[in-house]
């Protein structure tokens, strides 16, 4: 299957912030979470993808068409939900729907109404009068119902209440089950990442740390409690250490080393995804990483 997104050597600097170089491929039927600390460039990356910002160098292809050129055929295949939308306050949900649905040939009105009902969004009130959470729900309905193969969601659940977050996940799962679709989302909600994502694309202060399959992280990060004092040298696979504990992202080589050096461990435990993300995003572990 042809990739939906192909990004190569993408770079962008804004004042003293430098994003990239970034390489990323998004295959059909996948959900990728963009994960990073605040100001790591996640939103900028999404904006670059839909041509709302222009890159300094590198290339973005959506559905085999280069973004930023005359041919804008990719646009009908992408729905983007930004974090903040300006200029909507004066319009009601009904008006916004009418404005958007004519732009997207695959607009699914039944799905839109289903989401509005599920989220209990009043369509006759002006957008500016709605609470942040309800605005977010309306925006999500206006985006998902476009029924494009690629959905880009920037912090879609930040203001949502707990039941709505659950509905949101079920909606996206059902939406994915229709086939030939992919989602890229940014989120600081671990629950979203755990339940929805197949891949984690990790950015730290503009630098690409990597694109990881979720189980590749959760199955490979292990914490060992050792019997004896830690050796002074770095143990193969080691990403952090404290007292008698070490964390490894390559348990196989770590255990071979420990056994060879007759260092016994009394316990071995997998790390939670939160901890793994924290390690990936904490600068002082970078020198040990891979």
């Amino acid at each position: 299957m042809k990739a939906y997104v192909e990004i190569s050597k993408l770079q962008k600097s804004i004042d003293d912030f430098q994003l990239g170089p970034i390489d990323l491929i998004i295959e059909p039927e996948t959900i990728t979470a963009l994960v990073g600390n605040n100001g790591s460039g996640k939103s900028t990356l999404l904006k670059l993808m839909v041509n709302l910002a222009s890159s300094d160098s590198g290339n973005i292809k959506l559905f085999n068409t280069t973004v930023g050129r005359e041919d804008e055929s990719w646009k009908k295949n992408v729905a983007y939900l930004p974090q903040n939308i300006i200029g909507m306050d004066a319009y009601t949900g009904n008006t916004l729907k009418a404005l958007i649905e004519i732009l997207y040939p695959n607009w699914d009105n039944a799905l839109f109404m289903e989401l509005i009902k599920l989220f209990d969004v009043p369509l006759d009130k002006r957008f500016g009068k709605l609470s942040q959470g309800v605005q977010q729900k309306l925006n999500l309905a206006l985006t998902v119902a476009r029924n494009t193969p690629l959905l880009l969601l920037d912090e879609p659940t930040a203001f949502m209440d707990i039941p709505s977050k659950r509905f949101f996940m079920d909606i996206l799962v059902d939406w994915m089950d229709k086939g030939d679709r992919s989602i890229i989302l940014t989120s600081h909600q671990v629950e979203d990442i755990k339940k929805l994502s197949d891949y984690l694309f990790v950015l730290r202060n503009g630098d690409m740390i990597g694109n990881f399959e979720k189980e590749n992280l959760t199955e490979n990060y292990k914490r060992y409690w050792l019997n004896d004092q830690l050796p002074n040298t770095t143990i193969p696979g080691e990403v952090s250490r404290a007292h008698l504990q070490i964390v490894s992202n390559n348990p196989e080589v770590t255990e071979i080393f420990l056994q060879k050096n007759k260092i016994r461990w009394i316990d071995r435990k997998s790390l939670e995804l939160e901890e793994i993300i924290t390690l990936l995003l904490t600068a002082n572990t970078s020198s040990h990483y891979r």
């Binding site: 959900i31 996940m169 089950d177 929805l196 197949d198 399959e213 979720k214 189980e215």
Partner: peptide
């Protein structure tokens, strides 16, 4: 996709 969500693993798995 549904089982992946329920078990919090990727669809690849």
């Amino acid at each position: 996709r549904v089982l992946a969500k329920d078990l919090e693993v990727s669809v690849i798995t």
